[in-house]
């Protein structure tokens, strides 16, 4: 009995180890979503804080779906959501088109080179995101490096307006999120048994057929993970459209930010966030599933 009690006491620290991060996440991660949901159902007022209380003081609940109705009726929001999905999807495909050959090349390089190439993929990730976006401002300007070089080469005689266009946003998105695409792709391609491609060719497949029959389907977990890792943050991106995009290129992250800070309409901003979250729930769950499967596959 005593031994059992001693063992129990030894296990107390385990409870403790679980409880501390658990509570932290409950309070600072889960609870805030309940609050967002609550405020999205309030009316905006000019006060501090600028929304009506959830409980009306007489024991009733003062919930209103006005903000959601506004989101539905005002065409601006529907267009913005659609445009965000579209731009995030295009940026994801561009990342895939650039990232797949890169990951393939890295995975097939010899070991010393491979580590250096990987390091060079990861390195920008450690350098400030904001400064990396900023670097493109200097390149894409009307008087920026790219225009100067093109004029000097006499390819063009007037600067091309790269900045404040959708093109600039795509450049910024691809630039910022490329490592998120390359790394999971590299991981699956590197694990792949090269004999499989040889075997396909041995059985009569041309190199391109062997790629589509073998390499591509086997790389699918990496493709899915990479695409989701790019698509999800790109959907909510604020800095890139703000710094590189024009005033008409309204992405949902920026609209949320402005709704909150400029218009001080907290309930509407909350509703925008909830709808964005609903749009992202499916890809997020998908990503977590695929990552969990990956973790199990390793074990």
């Amino acid at each position: 009995m005593i031994a059992v009690a001693g063992f129990r006491r030894d296990m107390l620290w385990q409870r403790f180890t679980i409880a501390i991060p658990y509570l932290w996440l409950l309070v600072f991660f889960l609870a805030p979503f309940a609050i967002i949901l609550k405020i999205s159902l309030a009316d905006p007022i000019i006060a501090q804080p600028p929304f009506t209380p959830f409980f009306d003081g007489q024991g009733g609940v003062a919930a209103t779906v006005d903000s959601y109705l506004f989101l539905l009726t005002d065409k601006l929001y529907a267009v913005t959501y659609l445009k965000s999905v579209f731009m995030a999807a295009v940026a994801t495909l561009l990342c895939l088109a650039l990232g797949f050959p890169m990951a393939y090349g890295i995975a097939r390089a010899d070991e010393g080179t491979r580590n250096l190439l990987l390091l060079l993929i990861v390195l920008p990730f450690w350098i400030s995101f904001l400064l990396r976006v900023y670097a493109w401002m200097g390149l894409l300007n009307n008087h920026g490096v790219i225009n100067n070089v093109l004029i000097w080469l006499q390819v063009i005689d007037k600067p091309i307006a790269f900045m404040y266009t959708d093109f600039a946003i795509y450049v910024g998105l691809v630039y910022s999120y490329l490592p998120f695409m390359v790394l999971p792709l590299y991981a699956t391609l590197e694990r792949m048994d090269l004999d499989l491609v040889d075997a396909a060719q041995d059985l009569g497949a041309r190199p391109s057929q062997a790629f589509w029959d073998i390499t591509w389907p086997l790389a699918r977990p990496g493709v899915i993970a990479g695409c989701l890792l790019v698509f999800i943050p790109a959907m909510g991106e604020y800095v890139i459209p703000y710094l590189l995009g024009g005033p008409e290129s309204l992405l949902i992250g920026r609209v949320l930010f402005d709704e909150f800070f400029v218009n001080r309409d907290w309930p509407l901003a909350s509703a925008v966030a909830i709808v964005l979250l609903l749009l992202l729930v499916v890809p997020i769950v998908f990503l977590q599933r695929s990552q969990a499967r990956d973790a199990e596959g390793h074990a």
């Binding site: 048994d193 004999d195 040889d198 075997a199 396909a200 060719q201 041995d202 009569g204 041309r206 389907p217």
Partner: peptide, 20 residues
Amino acid sequence: LPPYERPVNMMFQSYAVFPH
């Protein structure tokens, strides 16, 4: 001749059976 045009087939040491 490239491997896919040879009248020769191979059984790999790793078997290389297509997992998918």
